[in-house]
Nucleic acid binder design. Structure first.
Lengths: 223, 223
DNA sequence: ACAAAAGTGTTAGGGGTACACCCATGG
DNA sequence: CCATGGGTGTACCCCTAACACTTTTGT
């Protein structure tokens, strides 16, 4: 059977919270087209692997990061999005805890964290892919337990709150936030340990609970 | 450059509300593989058209339906989802008003509405695509004005409520629903006309308003 | 003692649910 | 007059926002 030949790639929007900023993992392109421009990590899907498997493999190859969460974002296939040939890319969204990019990774030498506010003029249509990924992350924090994917294995309520504040770019009331997340059954799993790493009264340490959804949701203010 | 060759298709989950059931548009396959089985409508993306354009074209070719809403759903690309060759499909979700399938359409002769509860054992991985599409529709009714895409140009509050009840499979309080949707600014545009087609007191007729999002959302009960 | 961060109590208000009640038409 | 569906009023409840206040550490 005749069919138009396409290349299929996966691209990755890898987000993390570093300090007070939401950052995305970018690589500098070493070849045409868009040589020298920043781009999302990604690559060709192999003939015998699925889309999710390709995304997982690329993430490991290009970054070596511990991944907290990985999901399909959307597909992009404008006929002229790659000047060389017809390429359809299946973008994925990954949320990872704050960690340095391992330089030992095979292709990771050029990977680095860039604040999303400064990530512009990316190669291909990656500006739009990134914007879609950030919007997806912002929206899913409202009604899922996804924010814990940005934290390490053990974290305090304040660290989880910082994730929300950085991703949404809006301060939250610490008291109400504390009551809300500790009151949601299955969201947080107390370890019994405490920490005082941020000064002040020691805070309880928690692990992610089993809950995936937030009922009721934690809404961004409408204003 | 060498790259693994893929075929790229679009598949369509076309939903409507007919009577008391949520229905999906299916076509019977006339060739191998899965000859004689039901499948979602779809086809190959052409070399010089985008993904959304391909979905729009296929929908027109295979059904000739007036489309109320069309959006990308997700992509599916397991290596063995098509026994002939490697195929990645970009599924789209379409919501349309209740209308008969035009038999004049080119490929539409075999297209027909099937209640989603009875749509099983579809070709390829279309069972899962359909399930994902139905879940997406259910979720988006909560916080968007998408339900109006199932209605004709003019509709009553009760017809809009029926959409919610059929899609969610759960009765809603007519009084509270009425207050809620008429109280959301920009959602409904009164025509000034009334109708008595369902008996009882005449109901106001409305058109879709400009609002795309529902604030506050209309939540499915947690129970 | 003081600063800083964790965590609790309390109050006022918005939106949801449940349901009593009234309105307008057909038969 | 009654059945049927359209539409309004209202009481209760839960959740949220706002903020006063207490607890527990480091310096």
């Amino acid at each position: 059977m005749a069919f138009p030949p396409f290349a299929v790639t996966v691209d990755l929007v890898v987000l993390t919270v570093r300090g007070d900023e939401l950052c995305v993992l970018l690589v500098r392109r070493g070849e045409e087209p868009f040589l020298g421009r920043d781009a999302l990590p990604g690559g060709f899907v192999r003939p015998d692997e699925g889309l999710a498997a390709a995304a997982t493999r690329e993430l490991a190859e290009e970054t070596g990061l511990d991944v907290g969460h990985l999901e399909q974002l959307a597909s992009y296939g404008d006929p002229d999005r790659d000047p060389r040939q017809r390429v359809v890319t299946v973008a994925h969204l990954a949320l990872v805890p704050d960690q340095p990019v391992p330089t030992a990774g095979t292709d990771a030498a050029e990977a680095r964290w860039v604040p999303v506010a400064q990530a512009r003029d990316l190669a291909f249509d990656h500006d739009r892919v990134l914007a879609d990924g950030v919007e997806r992350a912002r929206a899913k924090l409202e009604y899922t337990a996804l924010a814990t994917a940005f934290c390490g294995a053990e974290f305090t309520v304040a660290q989880l709150r910082r994730v929300y504040e950085v991703v949404w770019g809006r301060p939250l009331d610490p008291r109400n936030f504390h009551r809300k997340v500790t009151g949601t059954p299955g969201l947080l799993d107390p370890t019994g340990e405490t920490t005082t790493r941020d000064g002040g009264r020691p805070a309880q340490l928690y692990r992610r609970g089993e809950a995936e959804q937030l009922h009721p949701p934690l809404l961004r203010a409408d204003t």
